Simulated scan of single mutants.
Amino acid sequence: MNRRTMFKTLAATVGIGGVGGVVATRRRGRNPYYEGPVSDHFDGVRFFNPEGKPPKGFRDLMRWRFGPTPAAWPETVAVIPAKPATRIDDLTVTMVGHATLLVQMAGLNILTDPFWSDRASPVRFAGPTRIAPPGIAFADLPPIDLILLSHNHYDHLDIDTLHRVQAVHAPQVITLLGNDTLIAPTGLQTQAIDWGESTDFGPLQVHGVPSHHWSARGMGDRSMALWGGFVLTGPVGALLFIGDTGFDEGRPYQGLQRFGPLRLAILPIGAYAPRWFMQDQHQNPDEAVRGFKLLGAAHAIGHHWGTIQLTDEAREAPRDALSEGLKRHGVAPERFRAMAPGDSWAIPSI
């Protein structure tokens, strides 16, 4: 993908560059997605990362736009799709692609940030294109009970896929504040929670936890819907899913020990180059390993790599850098896997 194409497609995917729209919306003092009290991460109009850094602005985007050429990705890669079991009583995870995983846990089937579309974009004729077919064919999905939706960027909140899932499975969605407004047209039953809030789903408890990121769907709605992660606790152990995060001096990994030993952490490892531009919002593989160690988790899955090109690094770079980071930090490679589409892993018990 050349620099001009990447600039256009990334801007379309995550709403970078809408500085004028952001200023106009702030002047009106209106948030179209969420109304609620001011908190330590909401100023009455926008959410923010406490003590963290905001996303880069237009000038930095242009500096990246005219910087070094990004690594070339293949046009397509071969995938052998998995055919998961209907139900699993313990804990098995199958990679679909990017941030989409099928978590089969305590008899429930859970999708994270479901994305089956050909592009991660507000339009169908442009935007980051999927190079790896889904690791599970949509028709081979088991009955889906729950969707965990981490934030509203187009590579995570894919409206077309949500319509498809609703038509076939009609699951419940648990997301963070404000995203329920965006999901409402799909007809999905949706519950939005804040950081620090919890809700029950069957035998599980779902807890909203912070990540260091941001949100946008267009030119004037930056950070008006909340982002974050989820901890699931229940009869087969505790699991953490983070859709996107910067390392932020390790803050997203602090305080999660209160949920008990984590059996599995699902952490992003891709879309991190160049570091001067991406580091505040997207951790790299070495930081993911550092986060894994801070968590004290037993096992981890690296996602957010190898399906769509958003940034400068080569397709396999996150996987290779994860392997190097595990060696550097003395972590056995079988504990932290960069799963590719179609891979399944029955997570060992603690």
Rank of each mutant, 00 (worst) to 15 (best):
M1P: 11
R3V: 04
R4A: 09
F7S: 10
K8A: 14
G15K: 02
G21F: 01
V22K: 08
V23Q: 03
R26T: 06
R27Y: 05
N31K: 02
N31R: 03
P37Y: 06
F47G: 05
P50C: 12
G52T: 01
K53M: 08
K53P: 03
G57Q: 02
M62Q: 05
M62G: 06
P68D: 15
P68Y: 12
A72R: 13
V79Y: 00
I80Q: 14
R87E: 05
R87P: 00
I88W: 11
L91C: 03
M95S: 02
H98Q: 10
A99K: 09
T100H: 09
A106S: 14
G107W: 12
G107P: 05
L108G: 07
N109A: 08
S121F: 02
F125T: 00
A126G: 05
P128K: 00
T129H: 00
T129L: 05
A132Q: 01
I136R: 00
I136N: 00
L141K: 01
I144S: 00
L146I: 11
H151V: 11
H153E: 09
L157G: 04
I159R: 08
T175E: 08
L177P: 10
G178T: 11
N179Q: 14
Q189Y: 06
W195L: 07
W195T: 06
T199N: 04
S215G: 07
S215N: 10
M219G: 13
M224I: 03
M224F: 00
A225D: 01
L226G: 09
F241R: 12
G250C: 12
R258C: 11
R258F: 06
F259V: 04
P261E: 12
L262R: 03
P274D: 05
M278C: 14
N284D: 15
D286P: 04
E287T: 05
R290H: 12
G296L: 04
G302T: 02
H303M: 13
H304I: 12
G306L: 03
T307N: 01
I308S: 09
A321T: 02
L322D: 03
H329C: 10
R335D: 01
P341D: 08
D343M: 10
S344H: 04
S344V: 09
A346T: 06
